[in-house]
Amino acid sequence: MKRLLAAFVVGALTLGQPSPALAYLKYGVSVRGQQVTVRWTQSPVRYFVSNTAVPGVTAVDFQNAVARAFATWQAVPTASITYQLAGVTSASPGSDDGSSVLGFRSRPDLDRVLAQTSFLIDNSTGALIESDIFFNSSFSWSVNAAGETGRFDLESIALHEIGHFSGLGHSALGETEMASGGGRRVLSAEAVMFPIAFTSGSIAGRTLKADDIAGISDLYPDGDFTAADGSLSGRVTKDGQPLFGAHVVAFNPATGSLVGGFTLNAQGQFSILGLSPGPHLVRVEPLDDAETDSFFDSSRVIDLDFRATFFERLVVVPKGGDTGEIAMKVAHK
């Protein structure tokens, strides 16, 4: 009999506790002492949509918006994951019944949570068994093609949550500031998987970015992804000591793409996969202090006291290979 572990993972406007694996934040579980990436092992991944409607969004609107978001992830040419609508259900998301359900639920108590994804995982293999997404109907929603002032864009939020649904954690490619009413407001983001949503009315989150594409391709590599793309790895130190939780970004000056990763072990090592071959600039920066819990277990000590720093050499990502470890040194602020 399988031993099941229910792990709750959260999406936009709230904090979670993903277990970092290598590379970008993927979710991981410990299986017999080994860190195993959480992912679906069957394809297509079947999902149900609930028949619950909310003001401004009919059940059909909901089904269509969610289908568009699934199609966006499925269209990534270097990823193999596919999804299939299994049907419409009256069941609510969140029950551990073996069926993945997406739908609205009213959770006024979660006043900063737009949506949330939960997992049911076989913790002997790391395989996903079920993933549910609820959209908090305490907020106002829209499926308007151009967005709607004062309402959150369902497709954008679904796109983020389906990233979690597929096994992706959060990306730190974004900037925020304190909002006047509390919480943080996003100034800019270059990943759908950034943990905080754009303001209501925005539809900027409907398009996957290079970081998202690298992440889903790393989880579900397709075709010649591993042969055609490359990876960049290295180590970050401060005062000679390894740095944990530093945000490392690879920038391709030829394409303008940004792909992020983190130093994720006691040696301060990082690895960023899914990069197009060619020269890259590498930049390391501390996480925003208000955001660390969106990426790491709150028990981990994340060093935020260092200056954003560029690596002094261009790092050439080879086709189908790794750059070899680069050594980045950062200094106190």
């Binding site: 974004g174 800019s188 754009f198 900027a204």
Partner: peptide, 16 residues
């Protein structure tokens, strides 16, 4: 070329 992030309005904001 600037390294940019997308703003809520769909514009861009330069990181560097």
């Amino acid at each position: 070329r600037a390294a940019t992030e997308t703003t809520a309005s769909g514009g861009t904001s330069a990181l560097f």
